[in-house]
Design a protein around this nucleic acid. Structure first.
Lengths: 212, 212
DNA sequence: CGTGCGATGTATCGGTCCGATACATCGCGG
DNA sequence: CCGCGATGTATCGGACCGATACATCGCACG
């Protein structure tokens, strides 16, 4: 999951670890608290070893005006490679069971702007299925095993059930929107560098006309 | 977290692994999908090594009428020890940061019937604090960094924000209830075996009169 | 009558991710 | 001038998961 997220973010612009973590937190804040460095750095190493990313010599954004203050060590900037982009394309296109759990779904959804519509639909429907099953499980417990459980546990289940129902409704809306060929509200890609080369079709609706 | 959950469940009645997993799933279904055996069995081993639980020779519930069908191997039944109960008491009473994240809070909440009121209050307020911070983070992103993000990511944040607001309201209610000295609705412990010996005070409200 | 299949049941292995910790630099205010 | 908070990289042990393997039991279907 982290792999996918990193590849996705580096596709927008090269970054170093710290920056990456902040962007990750901003993008996935609704899903998970904050990515730990204990997973981030090893993953970066792994991705580099696999050849999906490389160290970029230059500073991350535009900072050539601060060339060499003392020694310039530390601050390892990573950029995605062509193989990395291909890898991202594979990961983002596949929809398995791990795509439907809370974290997996969240990460995939966060990169829906880079996912083609058919896959988006498959993922949304798979997620809905998953949540519906969870919902049924909770209803079962609340119905059949209610007297075995104390009031607090029951309250927890009720709250969970409520969240499930709400999410199913949310997904229904998204699916309907998706089928009608529109992104949720006002879509925009906003890929920083420009440079759109291989996969990842632009999102539907008002897509390619940035600043009309 | 698993440790706490296992100790809590075994306090109600002795069980073997498979059973434990089912009960765990029923009790924590609103929180996490299903506990993996890959964590359950090693944890059981760890708890046994620590002396918190022991293997019980007898069959789990009431099954003496099926004494020896062939050889009777497999089916390791665990029961909690006195030290285990003490350990559970410690774990359930402490409220740290890990008590406020999604999983930690869920597990603690599921055993609120065995938690004293002061601790319940502390945990609920800590959780509220945590969710409020997450909410503020999401609001920040939706306010300040909105134009940097695509419509899908934004939609994800909105949904997350909504969930936060809803949970804060839920917590407010629970806290108010708690302060007024009542359990959520109709409390009951329902400890199977009876046998209430050391810690874990009975829940407030209609507590000790089971079946009036 | 047997046989195969789904539920019950125990167990391990590799891998992902987290939390704590350590350490070094930079800019700023006191 | 010194400390402190932000920036920044990195490792280690541990918790938990997913896949996998394997063995038994009861029963439904041929």
């Amino acid at each position: 999951m982290l792999e996918l997220a990193i590849l996705g973010l580096l596709q927008e612009s090269p970054m170093h670890g710290y920056e990456l973590r902040k962007e990750l937190t901003a993008k996935l804040g609704a899903i998970r608290a904050a990515i730990s460095y204990g997973s981030l750095y090893p993953t970066l190493r792994r991705l580099q070893a696999a050849g999906w990313i490389t160290e970029a010599a230059g500073t991350p954004a535009s900072a050539e005006e601060v060339p060499a203050l003392t020694s310039r060590r530390g601050r390892v900037v990573y950029k995605i490679t062509a193989e990395g982009k291909e890898r991202f394309g594979q990961l983002i296109a596949q929809a398995g069971p791990e795509t439907y759990d809370d974290t997996g779904f969240g990460v995939h959804f966060a990169f829906f702007a880079r996912t083609d519509q058919a896959t988006r639909l498959r993922i949304l429907e798979g997620r809905r299925r998953t949540i519906e099953e969870r919902r049924e499980g909770l209803r079962d417990v609340l119905g059949r095993a209610a007297e075995r459980l104390d009031a607090y546990t029951l309250e927890l289940q009720r709250h969970g059930l409520d969240a499930c129902e709400r999410e199913v409704r949310w997904l229904e809306e998204l699916i309907a929107n998706e089928r009608s060929g529109r992104a949720p509200t006002v879509p925009q890609v906003g890929t920083a560098g420009g440079r759109r080369e291989d996969n990842s079709p632009p999102p539907p609706g008002t897509s390619r006309k940035e600043r009309p």
